[in-house]
Design a protein around this nucleic acid. Structure first.
Length: 642
DNA sequence: CGGGGGGCC
């Protein structure tokens, strides 16, 4: 392999940082590149002066950890540096993963523009439903980490990639963590593969420790030619400006009110600019917008424009199958990340609505990685599909609780997806792994095919995989509830969804129809799209489409086959789960709210002050024993879990 | 008997 820091030029200077990581530092920035305005812009990015150092590190190290602040340009520039240095020659591809689709598209478009190529040719991207790459032509490929995981099922060693850059690894999303674990394994088999992990300062050391192979291996590797296994850490400064941090002197009793008065004070006393407020949820956001708008009106503030922004809210922590939505303090790491938003384009200020003492003494250093607070059913099946048998011994960047693992294995066993040796069953297990949905939904689809209602089951699978098909209304809840009654079925939410879908098709997929019926048109378009993808996938698995027409019983049996572990029984006015006798309630958004059939199954549990079942369906208890004889003993008409 | 978030295949 050719060396590509400029031949004949001075080798970059190496310095040791006090933390024991290796930081390379290029004394003389590379130069001699094009002089177009785009080139000049590229050279002004902070990452540019590290170009030589980055290329040197990637050449000589299996793994390079780049610690970079936002605004350094690392995401758009590093893939281009790698390409310029020859890493995409000989048909090889440079990959760069992102946790979110939107950033994949945005970054790919930007890089294509900088390189003056058509998006989809030399620079392309792949996200779900959209593959803008051209095999043999595409040299730099942006993709979500979820897509890269899927690609592994076809090509477990990811042989076409020469360098894989995992961006935003510090976000510790479920799929990023699975990916990191698997990439570490791939490295043993493909020593020529290079990894670049982009991470926040706080995570760099643990990331480096994770990718450091054992001493023995290191000694062995020293005899061979090739990159060193010891990860390099390079710190790239951002374009960030100075940010002043302010704390409260006394804790706030009402953080919403405190947020509102802080905004008004800033508006009053500070020069012209923007104010960004972080709140916990839609309710608080709406309340704050209303309070601020009113205040601005009574105080006759002309220049105060209040806008709600619902994305990017904080995540709550938990470890169980229940989605927990209780408000909890953020970590220091996310407090810092939020403060950073104030210094992107000029110096800024950050007002923290808690005391400094609380920040230093009470707040956790960082949030719990998703891996350690999630249901691991999907994660386990993904590893199984890649032939990783020893799940409990898998080397994770953040090992999940063994109990959570065992629970996931147990559910997969009950579903008939894993056998007694915890291997994927054939064909069910392999088919479930192939379908890109949560395993219980996939199992439901397989049963729908066997029972002759795949049309209906796939529709509902698509609907359940999106947030909600109803428009989110604040203030007009009553109208929404009334609109729902048009579609409501006594069998529950799943059959209600079938009615909505039918109505949508009969309207000719009309957006006006959706509007009239309080249905989210964009959501329905997504449903159609997901449905088509699922039909393609199931066809590939040899399953045809068949409708059960009006036989909702067959349809509900198929749903039960996937969700029998979520069965509940009404006992003295409240529901108890069959599995653990936990008290649960039907969510008020369900059409079965206040209907309370004796036996129900739910799709998910959400926890606030109580445990609420979302998407609920009435069942006959005998279906449970039918669907899972191993799980339910038949005792007259009262199945009991053993 | 009343409703709290985000992301991905």
């Amino acid at each position: 392999m050719s060396r590509f820091w400029k031949p004949g030029s001075e080798k970059p200077r190496l310095i040791d940082d006090e933390e024991g990581g290796v930081i390379f530092y290029s004394a003389t920035p590379s130069s001699g590149y094009g002089s177009s305005s785009i080139e000049k812009q590229r050279q002004r990015l902070p990452v540019f002066k590290y170009r030589t150092a980055i290329l040197y590190l990637v050449e000589t190290h299996s793994t390079t950890i780049i610690v970079g602040e936002t605004g350094s340009g690392k995401t758009t520039q590093i893939p281009q540096y790698l390409k310029e240095a020859g890493w995409a020659e000989g048909g090889r591809v440079i990959a760069c993963t992102q946790p979110r689709r939107l950033s994949v598209q945005a970054v790919a478009a930007r890089v294509a523009e900088e390189m003056g190529v058509k998006l989809g040719d030399e620079v392309g991207y792949t996200i779900r439903f959209e593959d803008l790459t051209n095999p043999g032509v595409t040299k730099i490929k942006f993709l979500t980490d979820g897509v890269l995981l899927r690609e592994m099922m076809e090509d477990p060693l990811l042989t076409k990639y020469s360098v894989i850059m995992v961006d935003e690894a510090h976000e510790r999303s479920l799929s990023t963590d699975i990916l990191l674990g698997l990439l570490k394994k791939i490295q043993c088999r493909r020593p020529e593969l290079r990894l670049i992990i982009s991470s926040a300062t706080i995570e760099a050391k643990s990331m480096s420790a994770f990718f450091r192979t054992s001493k023995k291996r290191e000694e062995k590797a020293a005899d061979e030619l090739g990159p060193t296994k010891e990860p390099a850490i390079l710190s790239v400064e951002g374009k960030g400006f100075n940010i002043q941090i302010h704390y409260l002197e006394e804790p706030a009793s009402d953080y919403l009110q405190t947020a509102v008065s802080t905004v008004l004070a800033i508006h009053d006393q500070e020069p012209f600019g923007d104010i960004l407020v972080f709140l916990t949820g839609q309710d608080d956001i709406d309340a704050a917008v209303q309070l601020l708008t009113e205040e601005a009106h009574t105080r006759k503030y002309a220049g105060l424009l209040v806008l709600p922004l619902y994305a990017g809210l904080s995540r709550a922590d938990q470890i169980s199958d229940i989605e927990n939505l209780v408000v909890a303090p953020i970590s220091k790491a996310s407090a810092r990340q939020r403060a950073g938003r104030a210094g992107r384009v000029r110096p800024g200020k950050c007002y923290r609505l808690y005391t400094e003492e609380y920040f230093t003494k009470e707040m956790a250093v960082q949030g719990i990685p998703e891996m350690q607070r999630s249901n691991l059913v999907s994660c386990v099946i993904q590893l199984k599909a890649l032939g990783i048998d020893n799940i409990l011994g898998f080397d994770w960047p953040a090992p999940p609780a063994p109990e959570a693992m065992v629970r996931a294995l147990e559910v997969l066993y009950l579903l008939g997806i894993l056998d007694d040796d915890a291997k994927l069953t054939s064909p069910v297990g392999f088919q479930v792994a192939e379908i890109p949905l949560e395993p219980m939904i996939s199992k439901m689809i397989l049963s729908g095919y066997l029972l002759g209602c795949s049309e209906e089951i796939i529709t509902v699978a698509a609907i359940l995989s999106i947030q909600s098909i109803w428009v989110s209304v604040r203030g007009s809840q009553k109208e929404l509830d009334e609109a729902k009654l048009h579609f409501a079925a006594a069998e529950g939410d799943h059959v209600t969804y079938l009615n909505v879908y039918k109505g949508f098709l009969q309207s000719g997929r009309s957006s006006q129809w959706c509007h009239k019926n309080f249905i989210n048109y964009q959501a329905m378009k997504k449903v159609i799209e997901t449905r088509e993808q699922l039909i393609k996938t199931t066809k590939r698995l040899g399953m045809g489409l068949k409708s059960c027409e009006r036989d909702t019983q067959v349809f509900r049996k198929a749903v039960t086959a996937g969700f029998f572990t979520n069965a509940c029984r009404l006992e003295g006015g409240t529901y108890k789960t069959i599995r653990s006798s936990q008290e649960v309630h039907i969510h008020p958004s369900s059409v079965l709210f206040r209907v309370n059939p004796k036996w129900v199954i739910y799709h998910s549990l959400v926890s606030t002050d109580r445990h609420y079942m979302r998407n609920v369906m009435a069942i006959e208890p005998s279906w449970l024993t039918e669907a899972a004889p191993n799980f339910y003993q038949h005792q007259r008409s009262n199945p009991v879990a053993f």
